[in-house]
C-alpha cells in the first residue's frame, strides 16, 4: 500500500512537471525563433517543437484533469436529481469512462507502434514523430486508471468523486 501511494505521488509529480515544462518550452522556443529571424540566424523547426509540446501537454493534462476530476461536462440533468442518484450515476460514468480510456490507450499504443515501425519523421528537424504520438497511450492509460480509481473511491468513500481526487 505504501509502495502504491509512493508510485501515485511520483506519477503526479511527473505529470505536473511535463505539463508545466511543455508550456514554458513552447514560449521560449517561439520567442527564440522571433529573435533569430531578426538577427538573421536560421532557426527551423520551432513549429515542430511547439507541436510536440502541445500534444504532450494536452494528453498529460488530460490525465491530470481526470485525477482532479475537473473535465468539462454538462451537468444540467445531474443538478436536478437527488444526491443519491447522482452518486450512482457518477460512479457508473467513472467506470465506463475509465474502461473506455483504457481501450483507447490500447488503440493509441497500436498507433504509436505503427508510426514507430514505419519511421515517419517531421519535415524540418527529421525527429521521429512517434516521440509525439507516444503521448497518447500514456495520456489515455493514466486517464483510464484515474477514472477507474474514481469508481472505486465512489464505492468506498462518502461524497461524489468525479475523478480520483475529490474536487474542492
Amino acid at each position: 500500500m505504501k509502495l502504491f501511494s509512493l508510485i501515485d505521488a511520483g506519477l503526479f509529480q511527473i505529470e505536473k512537471t511535463i505539463v508545466s515544462s511543455c508550456m514554458l518550452i513552447m514560449a521560449v522556443i517561439l520567442l527564440a525563433s522571433v529573435l533569430c529571424r531578426h538577427l538573421n540566424i536560421v532557426m527551423v523547426g520551432g513549429e515542430e517543437i511547439a507541436q510536440f509540446t502541445v500534444v504532450w501537454l494536452t494528453f498529460c493534462g488530460m490525465a491530470l484533469c481526470a485525477r482532479q476530476g475537473n473535465h468539462i461536462l454538462m451537468s444540467a440533468v445531474l443538478d436536478t436529481i437527488s444526491m443519491e442518484k447522482r452518486k450512482k450515476l457518477i460512479t457508473g460514468i467513472c467506470l465506463f469512462t475509465g474502461c473506455f480510456c483504457l481501450l483507447l490507450a490500447i488503440y493509441s499504443f497500436q498507433l504509436t507502434q505503427s508510426v514507430f515501425t514505419r519511421g515517419q519523421v517531421t519535415p524540418a528537424l527529421r525527429i521521429p514523430i512517434w516521440y509525439m504520438y507516444a503521448a497518447t497511450p500514456v495520456g489515455f492509460f493514466l486517464t483510464g486508471i484515474y477514472y477507474v480509481g474514481g469508481f472505486f473511491k465512489n464505492l468506498t468513500h462518502k461524497g461524489i468523486y468525479y475523478g480520483l481526487e475529490k474536487p474542492e
Binding site: S20, S21, M23, V54, L57, T58, G61, M62, L64, H71
Partner: peptide, 16 residues
C-alpha cells in the same frame, strides 16, 4: 512553474 501548470491544465481541458 505553478503558473505554467495552471495554464497547461486549462489548455488541456480545451484541447482534448
Amino acid at each position: 512553474g505553478a503558473i505554467a501548470l495552471k495554464s497547461g491544465t486549462t489548455t488541456a481541458l480545451v484541447f482534448v
